[in-house]
Structure formats: C-alpha cells, structure tokens
Write a protein that binds this DNA or RNA. Structure first.
Lengths: 140, 140
DNA sequence: TATTGTTATACTCTATAACTATA
DNA sequence: TATAGTTATAGAGTATAACAATA
C-alpha cells in the first residue's frame, strides 16, 4: 500500500461535487449560499461582511449582493461598527433565525431522505467523518 | 449510540459542498461540468446526449449547450445514431482525450495540493471511502 | 494611502418553453 | 402521438472594475 492516488481522488471529488450541487438545486430550489450565510450567522453570531466573505470563500462584492437580498427579505440587519464605521456588523434578525430553523427540515428534505434511504448507518458515519475533512479542504 | 443526526449531517453537507465548489471555481477557472462530461465520456465511452444529461442530473437542454461548447472546441464529436436518427452519439475526440489527460494534473493542481498538505494519509483514505457514498447520493 | 464596503456590469451555468426531426 | 434533441430566453450566482466612505 503506497498511499492514495491523489489525482484520481481529486478528479472524482470534483465530479461528485458538481453532480451533487446540481442535483440539490434541482430537488429544491434553494439559495445555497444564502442559507449557508444564515446558518453561519446563527452558529457564529454577529460578524462583519468581509469576515463572512472570507468564511464563504467569496469576494466581498459578491457577499454584498447576498447580504442585500437577505436584508431586503428582513432576514439580517446591517449596522456600522461604532468603533470603525467602515465596518458593517451583520446580524441575524429574529425573523431570519426563525425562518432558518422553521425551514431547516423542509429545506433539507430531499437530502435527509436520500441519506436515510441510500446509506447504511455505517456509511452515514463514514460521511460524518469525511465532512470535517472536506471543510478543511475548503478552508485550506 | 442511536445513529447519526441526519438533519445536522445534511445541513453541514450542503454548506461544505457550496463552499468547496466556490473555492474550486476561484482557484482555477475551470468549467466544472464540461470537465465532468469529458471525464465521463473517457470512462464510459460513446453515449447519447440524453444519457449524459441523466448521468449528470441535468436537463437535456442544458446538456445541449455544454455539448455545443465542447464541440465548438473540438473536444467531442456528435453524429446521429444510424439505428435511430433522432439520437445523437457523443464521442470524445482524440483532441478531447489528450486535452483531458494533459490538463488533468494542471486542472486539479490546487485540489491535489490541498489534499496532500491538509489531510493525513488516514484522512485521505476516509475521503476515498466517502466519495462513492456521495456519488450514490447524487444518483439516488 | 490603505481598508471596508457598495454599485455597475458581465459572464457562467442551468432552467423553462417552444420548436424541429424522427419514430 | 411520443421521443431525442436544439434554439431562444431568462434567472441565479459570482466575478471584475470603479467608486465612496472611513481610517
């Protein structure tokens, strides 16, 4: 055993990611990034726009548009940081938090069902072990 | 141990997928779907346009545009099936095959490096075990 | 000058709808 | 009529470039 064939692994990972993302978009028209941002605000609390952009591997300009949509829908609030008025503090509104929680089950419906019916408990645990590794790849 | 928390698993999977796809787009401006289609033709051989669309979880109309771009670039050929002239047989050209192989290392560069430097050999093996599970989710 | 964020604009990807050709 | 595929068009998502406000 001389280790893992990294080229093949990387190629398969890329292919699987593309397919899964398309499939998820088809299954439920969900705003992947918006939901991810709301979830992050829920987990990590108030933070600046640029921190969010960095965390999501997006450009600040792209994040600004996401935040505009979320603010328009009343799901987040933006206010200048009193200590540095260039910075905007982004905060989940009560409405954003309740929508995130209320919709979580419905939003994830297809994926939860797919995991439950397609994977054995052992395989689900393999996936649980693998997700932090994928997260680290995304943040590396 | 009562099993895996599927809601949390699904949410984290969604979040990780979005982040990784954005990150990969940033790291190398690669046409994710085109590359996936070329790779599939390389692995599975000549097939119809609709078979490709189904395999990639795309609409036939969307696949048609991908195939148009690939054909314009001379990477695939399209010809009617003699037995059913409604069907188009899609085939990787010599150029498509050589470009796929030649570019594989360069295309995957960032990802290969990230896997090599971020994950231990054991973790890489966990990822190898997890990818077929993700593939099955995408095809379920 | 450097940093944070926004606005304006364009490109990539994929969807829906309508159409053509063949069965 | 039904099926395989294409063309036309639109929308989501994110990028680059230029700008405004603050440090």
């Amino acid at each position: 055993m001389t280790g893992v064939a990294l080229d093949a692994l990387a190629g398969e990972l890329r292919s699987v990611l593309g397919q899964l993302v398309r499939r998820m978009r088809n299954e439920y028209s969900f705003p992947l990034t918006q939901t991810s941002v709301l979830g992050r605000l829920d987990r990590d609390g108030t933070q600046t726009a640029s921190a969010l952009a960095t965390a999501e591997s997006m450009r600040p300009q792209s994040m600004a548009q996401i935040l505009l949509e979320l603010e328009t829908d009343g799901l987040i609030s933006r206010r200048p940081d009193p200590n540095d008025r260039r910075r905007m503090l982004i905060k989940l509104t009560t409405r954003g938090r309740s929508q995130l929680r209320a919709n979580r089950r419905r939003r994830e419906g297809w994926l939860v069902d797919a995991i439950a019916t397609t994977l054995t408990p052992d395989e689900q645990r393999t996936l649980v072990d693998a997700l932090p590794l994928l997260r680290r790849l995304g943040e590396s």
